[in-house]
Amino acid sequence: MPPKRLIFAFLIYAILSGPIARGLSDGLNLNFLATLVVLQSSTLMLMLWLAQKRGWWDAVDTSTITEDSLQKILRNMLAGLAVFLSGLILTIRFGSDLRVSLLASGLTIAGGGWLLHATSRYLVWFAATQQNPALMDERMRANQRISEKWAFVGCVNTAVILGFIDFNGWVPLSGATVGFSTAIAGILAGLFSQYFLEWKDG
């Protein structure tokens, strides 16, 4: 279980995400949103720096983490994200049908819970790497660098494709749609490539 201060810092991070998401959907002032994003990113950076400096990671129980845990955690994150996004798309697409809407909401909540659990396990895994450097050795760092590149490629490609679609007027897209899609594509590409590389080395 991560220490309380770490949970508190993540809560601040999550709470700041709410107004950003709400602002994106309501089309709020861009300056206001940019300030929130900067605040949110600063909180995350400060939290990670403090966790490193104060040795909070050492207080985390990492006895359940083995060297094969990362692959399993990444698989769960991908699966959770896939279920979450499926539920979200179904909710938006078939929101008018009550039964489908209920099923889709259930899927979204289940996927979100799955993703949250996997993310908390990822944090525990990160804490384990601070206690045992062998869990994050040079091969895994090399894999991480490759997956960061794939995440960047995913972001750029998605932004270019969506920008091209909007530029040609095929489908009118808002900046929020492009930004959200780019972020999701980057996360998916990064997670999937890291999972694939770990699986390949397995």
């Binding site: 060297e67 062998a134 040079e138 091969r139 895994m140 090399a142 390949k200 080395d201 397995g202």
Partner: peptide, 15 residues
């Protein structure tokens, strides 16, 4: 001080 997978990938010429 590395993981077992790393030794495996070195032996197989992957890493």
């Amino acid at each position: 001080s590395v993981s077992r997978k790393t030794i495996n990938t070195i032996e197989n010429g992957v890493f």
